[in-house]
Write a protein that binds this DNA or RNA. Structure first.
Length: 429
RNA sequence: GUCCCGUUCGUCUAGUCUGGUCCAGGACACAGGAUUUUCAUUCCUGCAACAUGGGUUCGAAUCCCAUACGGGACGCCA
């Protein structure tokens, strides 16, 4: 029976590297129909913060990772906060005392290491041997247990079968194997996954790096499934050319032996590309729902907002830019981009606007197709390009040169609003 | 410094275990082009890598060794 755990320390942040570690644990548990446990390693009480845990819990949920045992869901191996497991740590310390594996020095309790090579049986790296040279502290002089001790005790007590964690822990594993043996407990399989390196510069990604926190992506309106998909592919691949994958597909294919051994550099451009792919392909209904959540002033006209969003989905790369992308649909006081105007004004824009305005006001077939035909006809009559009408009129209607399909935009805005804006442009600019 | 892990296009990776099908495939990025409504989208094309040196072999990206480089760990942090 596979039992894996993600064991973060509540620091107030949810690091992208931690999220990937959690994800690989979760994927492996789901792939093997095992149990995924969330355990909060809050032994360092000086740094512990109340809300710090909820940052992790909500980040996990946002990314779509559920846990079978842990905070808020419970489980028969609890409690799942290390700060509440003192009795258990005391019992395990007694085991070591009885077997004469520990001694006291300067008020701290040290564990005696064997100085024999320890086998770290790693599903990703193979069989790694390492000698632990020095005895190490397992209880501080203030009486609190340290990471190495509680981590192993809980893995034993919670019957963890596979320890999946970052490669930065590989050197710690010789300490941990010594402890497992000292408790007379079976040593779990290990899987040390590669680290995520900074986008620029050297070293692993740290909390201070731009884009290092899951919260950052959430605030920037990334789609969680896009970030999750990208993270899956950092150190793992389905071995064919698939990249955009449903989580069900990934669960089905994921295995620890297919995880890479070398570290990966985080590439925000590829993440942005994936996010755009998810935005464009998400079901319209969900797109509309999410879009309206992010539009502060669509004025209560839900039908109009739906239509605006519908024609914008194919052009949008991220929800972060949504408001800027569509604001002029709802706001009559939109700004004109001066730079765009200077390019336009050489091509008689006011003349084009007035010509198309006249047609729009009088046309019978006010539809995409009708408009397109009208513009083509006008362009032929005046021996200019259709683009001359489109550029000038789009600018008059939106103040921009970028936007959704021109004809769709006019239909959605409606004849009345379009005429009003065009007249205003003719009298103003 | 000591110990551990790693090294395929700028980046993420496939191929390495089971050597020949790889003058190395895909994606992002970048550059050009086509469609379109300028931008964007979409499509096409291009650019670009087996760290180096030895060895084993008829044959090595794939196996072995060394070197170099990168990463990590060496806390009464986790």
């Amino acid at each position: 029976m596979v039992r894996v755990r993600f064991a973060p320390s509540p620091t107030g942040f949810f690091h992208i590297g931690g999220a990937r570690t959690a994800l690989f644990n979760w994927l492996y548990a789901r792939h093997m129909s095992g149990t995924f446990i969330l355990r909060i390693e809050d032994t360092d009480r000086e740094r512990h913060m109340e809300e710090a845990t909820s940052v992790i819990l909500s980040g996990m949920r946002w990314l779509g990772m559920d846990w079978d045992e842990g905070p808020e869901v419970g489980g028969k191996y609890g409690p799942y906060f290390q700060s509440q497991r003192d009795d258990i740590y005391g019992e395990y310390l007694e085991i070591l005392r009885r077997n004469d594996k520990v001694y006291e020095q300067d008020g701290a309790i040290y564990f005696r290491v064997s100085r024999e090579p320890q086998l770290i049986d790693d599903l990703i790296r193979g069989q790694v041997y390492r000698v632990e040279e020095k005895d190490f502290v397992i209880f501080r002089s203030n009486g609190t247990p340290v990471f190495h001790f509680v981590n192993v005790v809980d893995d034993v007590a919670m019957e963890i079968s596979h320890v999946i964690r970052g490669e930065d822990h590989l050197s710690n594993s010789s300490k941990h194997v010594e402890l497992f043996k000292a408790f007379g407990a079976p040593v779990p399989k290990f899987a040390h996954i590669p680290l995520i390196l900074k986008t620029n510069g050297s070293g692993k990604m740290s909390k201070r790096d731009v884009g290092a926190l899951v919260e950052d992506y959430r605030k920037s309106r990334f789609l969680p499934e896009a970030l999750r998909n990208y993270l899956c592919l950092l150190g793992w691949s389905p071995k064919d050319d698939r990249e955009i994958m449903s989580i069900e597909e990934v669960i089905q294919l994921f295995d620890l032996c297919d995880v890479n051994r070398n570290n990966a550099r985080f590439d925000d451009k590829k993440l942005a590309y994936m996010n755009a792919a998810y935005v464009k392909s998400m079901p319209l209904e969900r797109f509309l729902e999410k879009g309206k959540d992010l539009l502060p002033n669509f004025g209560g006209d839900e039908h109009y907002a739906d239509q605006v969003l519908t024609i914008c989905q194919e052009k949008l790369r991220s929800f972060e830019e949504l408001n800027h992308f569509v604001s002029y649909f709802f706001d009559e006081e939109f700004e004109y981009e001066e730079r765009a105007w200077s390019d336009l004004k050489k091509r008689d824009p006011l003349l084009r606007i007035s010509e198309l305005l006249e047609v729009i006001e009088n046309m019978e077939d006010f539809s995409e197709q009708g408009l397109e035909e009208a513009v083509v006809k006008l362009a032929e009559e005046h021996a200019v390009k259709t683009g001359d009408y489109i550029h000038a009129v789009r600018f008059a209607l939106s103040g921009r040169t970028v936007g959704p399909s021109f004809y769709k935009m006019i239909v959605v805005m409606g004849r009345e609003r379009v005429a009003r804006r065009l007249k205003r442009a003719l009298s103003g600019k």
